[in-house]
Amino acid sequence: MALYSEPGEQVLLELRARDSWNQRDYDTAHRLADDAIALALDLDDVNAWWNMMFLKAECLRNLGLVSESARVAHELENHVLTVESAALTARVSTILSLALQGSGDLSGALTAARHAAAAVRKTPDQQESHIQAQYTLIAALADSDQLDEAWVECLTLAALLQGNPSSQISGKSYWAIGNVAFLLDQPEEGTKYHRLAAENLSPTNDLELWAKFNRASAEIRLAAGVVQPETLECIDRAELAVSIVGGSERDRIELALTRAHWLVLTGQFDAAAERLKFVISKDKLLATHTAAEAHLLLGRALKAKRDDPEAAVQNLETSEHLFSQAGAPSRAGSARELIEDIEPTRS
């Protein structure tokens, strides 16, 4: 039941919801958005309903409730306001792609990202929406192992940045371009773009985003085998930032996975295995491809320890299955190669 009944109170409720969002109090923003949605239905205010539904989807994603965010985005996707507007279609498809990517549906995420990129090309005056759709498409392509196409899209994104968007938008864009460079085994290019991202993303403006960037930057460097001191500094910065802002449980688990990855690559296999077993115990909170990564790393750690080849193979087989399920065949192949390397040594 709506808590208010007058149009003026609707506006006040929306303002309170957005104020909570701006303060990064996503729980309160989500609750107020729900109240505003109910009131908008009572008042038959379609525009207010759409805006608060979109805010709800954003809150849910930031709270780590990505499946719920995707459900709200799907509802908006089919709404008449969205269907009739290329700009709104781009916004909804972008957040839908991010939510599906977070839940491990890489195929769905890529489809939504392509839809967003196609829609935003019809609105050339919407520069920031174009950039957001572009870096979302790049992320979906990269996670789906389509790296050559992702790099082509990176060049398009780099050209868009010549229009001097906001620092935060630029930071996220350089972050996405750097990720692809690392995945293409171009660590110098990757480091260059991630340094540009760090210059544009300020811990003062958004400490939570700063934490996510540093964790992601560390993870992509580790995936490329880069274990220089700068990588460890990224992990340390992310852990410090999360200790201050709190973050969702999913954020903390993903950060534990990144630290474990560092431990595996630096030969600290016992410590890595302990952390990875904790991460895997919370796998219901993770995207499918992230859970697959945890099993892959545990398989690698156990393989290196050489004291339990059966457990190593079991984790690698789980990783292969999850990567295949998520739509990441190249990474599934990496797990299979490790299994084939172990099997001749099993008794």
Rank of each mutant, 00 (worst) to 15 (best):
V120T: 12
Q127A: 13
A116V: 05
A181K: 01
N164L: 05
L160D: 09
A142R: 06
A158N: 07
Q162C: 15
Q126F: 13
A117I: 06
A140N: 01
P165I: 00
G163F: 10
E128P: 08
G163K: 14
P124L: 04
D125N: 12
V180D: 07
A181E: 02
T136A: 06
T123Y: 09
W151S: 10
I177H: 01
V180K: 07
I131D: 03
L141A: 01
E153Y: 08
I177Y: 00
V180W: 05
L161H: 01
Q126D: 14
C154E: 00
D145P: 00
L137R: 00
A117C: 12
G178W: 01
E153S: 11
A176I: 02
I131T: 03
D148G: 10
S129T: 11
Q132K: 12
P124H: 05
S144P: 04
S144F: 02
V120M: 12
S166P: 12
F182E: 01
L147R: 02
A159R: 09
L157G: 00
Y174I: 05
L141P: 03
V120F: 11
S170G: 08
T136I: 04
S173H: 09
V152P: 12
A118K: 14
N179P: 07
I131A: 02
G163R: 13
R114G: 09
K122R: 15
P165Y: 02
Q134A: 13
Q168E: 15
A118C: 11
E128A: 09
Y174P: 06
A150H: 04
G171I: 07
